[in-house]
Design a protein around this nucleic acid. Sequence first.
DNA 1: CTGGGGATGGGGCCC
DNA 2: TGGGCCCCATCCCCA
Length: 273
Amino acid sequence: MPRSFLVKKYFAKQKPNYSELECQNDTSLDQFRLAELSSADSSPASTCFTSGLVFDLSILPTLYLSTSQIESPSPGPLDLSSPCSLSSSASSSGEEDEGRTSDPPSPEPVLTYAPRQRMKCTGVMAHISPAEEGEERETSSISSSISSSSGSSSSTAATRPAFLCKHCPKEYTSLGALKMHIRSHTLPCVCTTCGKAFSRPWLLRGHIRTHTGERPFSCPHCNRAFADRSNLRAHLQTHAEVKKYQCGVCSRTFSRMSLLQKHSSSGCCSTSG
DNA sequence: CTGGGGATGGGGCCC
DNA sequence: TGGGCCCCATCCCCA
């Protein structure tokens, strides 16, 4: 299977440092922190920061069958002790704004169009049944996968163990990677505000911002705020004279890969295809 | 059609 | 080994 997705980028060892983002984050962060703290006891949506988050695998089957039970975020016996539980501190601590942000977008090298296939596995939910939700079962399945794969005629397995996902054809070279991947099937992090489930807590945090309206990331150029750093990064491209993505045919640059792809597919590069 | 924002998924790296 | 975060990528929608 294609493993190109697992290939780390050229700057793999570089510590990202969007100094520009940091600056604005430092200044705006307090505002958001205050807003967050103040809203934490006033805004209904913000309740999800304190008690609206439940990560209970057992509810997932119910979740996909019917969301009626979770549409009313009643402060029931929430399992805040769960490893996936989030608290107001988790967000208000500004773990992602605290200066861990990355390097300056600065004069980045313009990238020519080199589309990468996004790997998706579909039909996942159909495989998830209440009886399958347990991590133990997952891991036991992993073990069996390992043994079966190592015994199979896989060329890669000859040198390293292959950790196969039982929900999809994906395979990994480490158990940790597989376990993390499995979370994308089990979706243990559930937003009790809307019932949407996520594979990782920080994904849920980002989602929660859509409820709270929190936008910790501000553009230093126009002060526009974003809930997601990636979106800010994309936005910063709009301020750049030379965009990050360049058409290999007409040299026109775009702020987003998707725009370049649209551009390519809509005519410019039709000479070659 | 293009440009851009919002939201989200996922692998890799660091602690 | 797991959690948290980073970054990239993608889809959807709207102006």
